[in-house]
């Protein structure tokens, strides 16, 4: 499903960080493209540089060399066209559930009147199952509810892109599976171009059009895998033979990269 126009393009992207022992190359000459309304998952060993690449798309960092473009234009900084779901959610603790969702709509970039804000809040609270908690403080919410709130807050400003960094990593298996289905459901209603970082091979297959497998640091592209299953997808997909084959293929790649990483750190310490 790589038919739509290119939205996010990584063009020979390299990133290095200054360290005590000189510059450390983290991302090494990565090129690929994410197309309109495509769901791309990025998977790879821990510490390889996945968050780093996403930070560049989000506009928090600049490439050391190469470029990342959005609709052909360079990225100047963070903006409401790209909704970011952080691993630690970043729910504002001093605002209620509803105020969190409305936050983006009170800013100059996307300001809406009270009536529209109310309507948007109601809509996403209903969609995310938060209606009963409109006026609750975030500290009263469970992990899954915080996750849904983060998603609702990002959706409220109508981003075209969704950048998610291990969004379901902290959830238990049942909640995680429910959140995956909810995400697919929401995306079916309001299509977005999605980049998702995950450590779960199953999650990557279940959700994505394509999976980008990254190598150990300095990270390069190991393989880009097309996921052939049509949407809407249901839980039963997990049981299919094709799913199983794809899973073992992706898992092998990831395990190999973990092995490379382990060897590297052995060499460093030895």
């Amino acid at each position: 499903m790589t038919t739509g126009r290119v939205r996010i393009a990584f063009d020979r992207l390299s990133v290095s960080f200054p360290t005590a022992r000189g510059r450390m190359l983290v991302v090494d000459d990565v090129s690929y493209a994410i197309h309109d309304r495509e769901f791309v998952s990025v998977i790879g060993p821990s510490g390889c540089g996945k968050t780093t690449t996403m930070n560049i798309v989000a506009g928090f960092m600049q490439p050391s060399s190469g470029a990342v473009t959005l609709d052909g234009k360079p990225i100047a900084g963070p903006g409401p066209d790209r909704g970011v779901i952080f691993q630690e959610y970043g729910i504002f603790p001093w605002l209620t559930v509803k105020q969190n969702i409305a936050f983006g709509l009170t800013l100059g970039a996307n300001r809406q009147g009270a009536a529209v804000r109310e309507e948007v809040c109601q809509r996403y609270m209903r969609l995310m199952g938060l209606s009963d908690f409109a006026d609750a403080w975030p500290r009263m919410l469970s992990g899954g509810m915080r996750q849904r709130l983060a998603l609702a807050r990002a959706y409220a400003v109508k981003p075209q892109f969704l950048l998610m960094d291990e969004p379901f990593g902290a959830l238990d298996a049942q909640t995680r599976s429910a959140m995956q289905d909810l995400l697919l459901q929401v995306l079916a209603a309001e299509g977005k171009t999605v980049m998702l970082i995950t450590h779960s091979v199953e999650e990557a297959i279940y959700l994505s059009n394509r999976i980008v497998v990254m190598t150990a640091r300095p990270t390069r592209i190991r393989e880009i895998i097309d996921v052939p299953f049509a949407y809407p997808r249901t839980d039963a997909l997990h049981e299919s033979k094709e799913f199983g084959e794809l899973r073992s293929h992706v898992r092998d790649l990831v395990m190999q990269e973990y092995a490379v990483q382990a060897k590297q750190s052995e060499n460093v310490s030895g």
Binding site: A58, G59, F60, G77, P78, G79, P80, R82, G83, V84, F86, E88, G90, F92, W94, L95, F103, G104, T106, L107, G108, A109, N110, R153, A154, V157
Partner: peptide, 24 residues
């Protein structure tokens, strides 16, 4: 993280100060 979140939602520096840093 809160400052980053606010930025991704479109907040300017002044909005971040008034709506994120002051309440915290």
């Amino acid at each position: 993280i809160y400052v980053r979140v606010a930025r991704t939602l479109g907040a300017t520096d002044f909005e971040i100060f008034r709506k994120v840093i002051v309440p915290m």
